[in-house]
Simulated scan of single mutants.
Amino acid sequence: MFKGLGGLGDMAKMMKAAQEMQGKLAALQQQLATTLVTGESGAGLVKATATAKGTLTALDIDPSIFNAEEKEVVEDLILAAIKDAQEKAQEKTQEETRKLSEELGLPAGMGLPV
Rank of each mutant, 00 (worst) to 15 (best):
K13P: 08
E69N: 12
T57C: 04
M15G: 05
I65H: 00
K88T: 08
A48C: 04
I78F: 02
Q22V: 06
M15K: 03
T93M: 12
A89C: 09
A33Y: 09
T34Q: 14
A17N: 10
A81Y: 00
L32N: 04
G105K: 07
G109S: 09
K13Y: 10
D62P: 00
K83T: 15
A27I: 03
K53N: 14
E102F: 05
L104C: 04
G6W: 02
T55F: 10
P113M: 11
G42A: 11
R98M: 13
E40M: 10
D76I: 07
M11T: 13
T34I: 13
G111P: 09
D10R: 15
L79M: 15
S101K: 02
K71I: 11
A89N: 05
L77G: 00
L45F: 11
K92S: 10
L45I: 14
T57V: 14
T35H: 04
I61L: 09
I78D: 01
M11N: 10
S41N: 01
K71Y: 10
L8C: 01
K83N: 15
E70I: 04
L112F: 06
E20Y: 03
K3V: 13
M15Q: 09
T93L: 10
A68C: 04
Q22P: 06
M110W: 09
L112S: 04
G54P: 05
M1Q: 07
L8T: 01
M11E: 13
A50V: 10
V114T: 12
K88Q: 08
V73F: 10
A12E: 12
K71W: 06
V37M: 02
E103A: 12
I78E: 08
I82D: 03
T97K: 00
M15S: 05
L104V: 06
K92D: 06
K99M: 06
G54H: 05
E102K: 11
L77S: 01
E69R: 07
Q31R: 13
L25K: 07
K53H: 10
L79H: 13
L106G: 02
G39S: 05
K47E: 09
